[in-house]
Design a protein around this nucleic acid. Sequence first.
DNA 1: AAATATATGTTGCAAATGCAACATTTTACA
DNA 2: TGTAAAATGTTGCATTTGCAACATATATTT
Lengths: 219, 219
Amino acid sequence: MYQMYQNVLSSELFRGIAEKDLSSMLRCLNARQLAIRKGDYILRPGEKIENIGIVLHGTLQIMKEDTDGDRTILAQLEPGSHFAEAFCCAGIVESPISIRADTDAAIMLLDFTRILHTCTHACVFHTKLIENMLFILANKNVQLQTRMEFLSKKTIRKRLLKYIRHCSNGTTNTISIPFNREELANYLCVDRSALSRELAQLKKEGILDYWKNQFKLLK
Amino acid sequence: MYQMYQNVLSSELFRGIAEKDLSSMLRCLNARQLAIRKGDYILRPGEKIENIGIVLHGTLQIMKEDTDGDRTILAQLEPGSHFAEAFCCAGIVESPISIRADTDAAIMLLDFTRILHTCTHACVFHTKLIENMLFILANKNVQLQTRMEFLSKKTIRKRLLKYIRHCSNGTTNTISIPFNREELANYLCVDRSALSRELAQLKKEGILDYWKNQFKLLK
DNA sequence: AAATATATGTTGCAAATGCAACATTTTACA
DNA sequence: TGTAAAATGTTGCATTTGCAACATATATTT
């Protein structure tokens, strides 16, 4: 139970909230805790979205499942991360996506309207929660926008170099990225083996050096 | 001047705000109006971001300009649209993008911190503004996420069909899209002529019919 | 209505990529 | 330490795509 609270407190939504205030807050937000079995769905396409979720433990997968059976994995949610917050804030009530437990998991659901609208007890923390929510959404925005810039490039080479230059951000020469090959290929929306091929080519041309997830721009 | 106010009121940030309250609000938010000449920069890479902007008239262009001279147009801003709001909310103070006036233009700048934090006069509209801001960010999020789903497809055909199916949204057979060919190609990050080629192919195969920006899925 | 500008379509060709199948390296763990 | 599993690299080949250059169609203007 203590661990659960820790994961709530370490979520971005509760950033800056004091531990002593947490339990009264959770009551105010009508927080409910749910245990989910591996493989079970937390949300299916078309279902009503009424809550914001926080992952307490385990991993969830957000997927887009089309009628034609085509399935895309949109995100992997680890403990401390949220889901459905953008839909709640955008007033989208019918879920366009699926969420499924990738492992046994526990989640916490919060009543969205109670975050937004100050309650009758005039709890002081609403302001902080809303501020955090703005931060979360805005950050996601910037991240998506950034990724889009990579995807707008038409060759693997350009996508890759743009990504690495973005990660390098000036200072050090050696860049460590948060992806393995498969994940990087997925992030850049290219085939893994084609990515390997391009990496090898760049190394041969002396433009880039790499080892695992460490990269170094030469020239 | 009246027209200016109309464009402020019609912006998403001020949705639901009564006209009579506007001028006192603008004072509270330290609103400033600026006239911009065509071609002038409103924001350059690295500059401090302290304000949220609203376009009053004219059009602005958001661009990503890399050190290597590579320039990507990220968005076109028409009257009533905002800029820099995501960076403000995400606490990003150094601009990673450029904004330039595409035509002669007028903009309004608002002090971001005054939107977020209730002022000494305890103006009641802050709540509404913040709610609107959440809505704006969340909606942009959903839009970006949606576009990403298209871009994750690896052939023009799949991107295109996914996009059209998304627009069709169930009901009618005939879909009208908000892009011409060039813009559609740009949105899907593909070459315009290659897009034309694929469209012709789909028509020949009897999968899709189209005329201008009207599309019709067959079969 | 003619003339110009803009949007859209067509096509050849070289380059890039996905895909599949398999090789090699690294990691995990029994 | 040895062995299985996971990650990464390699390569042939068919397909797709960008690009360029040009053709045709539609819109706009005078």
